[in-house]
Design a protein around this nucleic acid. Sequence first.
DNA 1: TCCATATGACCGACGAAATCGACCAAACCC
DNA 2: GGGTTTGGTCGATTTCGTCGGTCATATGGA
Lengths: 145, 145
Amino acid sequence: MTDEIDQTLIAALMEDSRRSLKALAQISGLSSPSVAERLRRLEERGVLKGYTVEIDPRHFGYQLQAIVRVRPLPGRLHEVERLIQATPEFTECDKVTGEDCFIARLHVRSMEQLDELLDRINGYAETNTAIVKKTSVARRLPPMN
Amino acid sequence: MTDEIDQTLIAALMEDSRRSLKALAQISGLSSPSVAERLRRLEERGVLKGYTVEIDPRHFGYQLQAIVRVRPLPGRLHEVERLIQATPEFTECDKVTGEDCFIARLHVRSMEQLDELLDRINGYAETNTAIVKKTSVARRLPPMN
DNA sequence: TCCATATGACCGACGAAATCGACCAAACCC
DNA sequence: GGGTTTGGTCGATTTCGTCGGTCATATGGA
C-alpha cells in the first residue's frame, strides 16, 4: 500500500516540505508527474495530513514553555477541555488515560503570564506544571517499515 | 522586526507550507519577489525553522500513542536521555523541571511493543505512562502579536 | 492459455510560477 | 538637503507543474 518510494517521499518532505516536485522526482527516481500523483493519493488516503511550518516561539516573545498535566474537578471535564481549546497559548493538548485527564503544552512570555493562565483553569481543575528546560528530541517520524 | 505581513505569511504557511510564492503574494498583498525575500530573511533569522509535513502514524501501524514521564535513577540521567534519543519510536522528548526529568511522546504498534520499549528504559528509570485517547488540540501556533 | 482491463509509470508540450537584474521610493542619518 | 540603506515593483528569462496521450506490466476470467 505505502511502498518504499512513498516512504522516501514522506521522509524527504519531512525534511523540507517546500521541495519542488522535480526535486522529489530526483530523490525518488520517478518523473515529476508520478510524484504528483503519489502525493495526491497519499493526501487522499489521509497518510499525509498536511504541510506545515516550524517556528521558533522565542521570536514572538514566548520565553517559557511548559508541559501541564490537568485533572479536572468532578463534572468539569468538558468545561476544562473547552477552556484549554479556547486559550491559544495552549498549542497542543492530548486527552489521556490515567489520573491526569489532559496533558498540554503551553507557551508563555513570562512567569506572570504562566501564573495567570494556570489560575484561570485552577478554578476547574488541579494542575501539575513542568517547565521545559531543553528539547531532547525534536519532533521526528517514527520508523516507517 | 517581524511585522504584520510576516505574521500573515507565517500563518498562511502554517496552514499549508506548500503554497506557492504567488499564492502567498496574493494573500499578503505583496509581489512574489518580496515574499521570497521575506521568507529568506525569516529563515535566516531563525524565526522559520523549517518546513515539514504532518503524517498519520496509524497508516504505518502505530495504533497507540503514549505520553511517558521518565525519572532516571540516580546517576543515569545521560544514559536515559541517549536511550530515548536512540529509540525512534520516541518522536518528541522534553527535559523538564520537577520530579520527572523527561516527558516524551511514544508511538507503538501494540501493547506488547509498548511494554517492550518501556522495559528497556525501566532498567535505568522509573516511568509513568498515559495512553493518548484523543487529541484535544492539534499542534497550532500561539498568538503572534 | 490468452485476452481484457486496470494500474502506474513515462514523455512532450504548454501554461504557470520562480528568479534575476534593473530600477524606484520612502526612511534614516549625518 | 544629499547620500545611503532598505524594501519594494516590474518585466524578461528560466525553471517547474500539469495535462493529454502512450506504453509496459500485473491481474483476473473465460
